[in-house]
Design a protein around this nucleic acid. Structure first.
Lengths: 163, 163
DNA sequence: ATTGAAACTTGATCGTT
DNA sequence: AACGATCAAGTTTCAAT
């Protein structure tokens, strides 16, 4: 697992494809080399299947953290705070909602230090006044694409048919 | 937007690829037809880019709901409750954690009826004793793959190099 | 282990219905 | 709009380094 592997994994994640050509464009690593590396990563179990889902624990991202962040209500504050939260390294999802909790933030981290840093980053943001973080013990279900949570039959009955 | 389109969108979501051949295998729709339909869906803005991320609101899935579900602690209950939560139609993610909230459940729904149904489904599960749901107003950030939240440089410094 | 070039497989296009 | 046949583009393999 060297820099070249990580460049390839990053490219797969960012592009959403394992296409050697696309990865070459992104990384300047020749497509035949990309192909060779991907084969090795599959053998090692880092890339789990033909759809290129990546085993996060094999690159150290073992901790999932769910954080509730609430912020002061002032004009414009909420979008600004949301943007700042979303830019913190390691943050995957930021949901904004009305009510007691303003934001739910989901992040993947490697160790306790990164957890400390993340929480410190939250509290440094201007306008944030309360944070509460919990470690995820198990992710019971994780479908990346919400549509996959429905059968095409269920979708058909939901969507008004447009001829 | 007819049944054939929805079969194709389902296949894209399930397979994680827009490959006409793969979709043909899954749906028995000829790959040339699949290609034709996908082009139309792209023109219509339903499929947003070349990586096949799907515009959920254009097929009616406009509501994101985050629910906290707590359950009785008894031997085995937690895994069982988690499984049942994950099987409810529309549920995308189920996180299990220690502490006050046991589960965080994220779902994508089309209308208020489905919200009511979902919450009823939660409460029907044996062992569930408290649920609290909030509507997401805006999803500020949503990276499907956690690795994309890090630069390859950040990953390199995190991962112990294996020669 | 890397890579340029050849061989092959798949995706995109075309023409007919 | 659908789809079988054709063409173009991509992926995989291979041989030399």
């Amino acid at each position: 697992m060297d820099k070249k592997d990580l460049q390839i994994l990053s490219a797969i994640s960012e592009l959403g494809t394992g296409s050697p050509e696309r990865i070459q464009e992104k990384t300047d690593i020749p497509k035949s080399t990309v192909h060779y590396r991907i084969t090795k990563l599959q053998e090692a179990g880092v890339i789990e299947d033909d759809l290129y889902s990546i085993d996060l624990s094999s690159i150290g991202l073992e901790i999932t953290l769910i954080s509730e962040v609430s912020a002061e209500y002032e004009e414009g504050y909420h979008t600004e705070v949301g943007d700042e939260l979303s830019q913190i390294e390691g943050v995957n999802k930021v949901y904004f909602m009305m009510g007691d909790t303003d934001f739910v933030v989901i992040s993947k981290l490697a160790d306790r230090n990164m957890v400390e840093e993340l929480i410190a980053d939250f509290e440094e943001i201007d306008g944030v006044n309360r944070t509460n973080s919990q470690f995820v013990i198990t992710t019971v279900k994780d479908t990346t694409n919400p549509i996959a949570a429905y059968s095409s039959e269920a979708l058909t009955s939901m969507v008004s048919e447009t001829e």
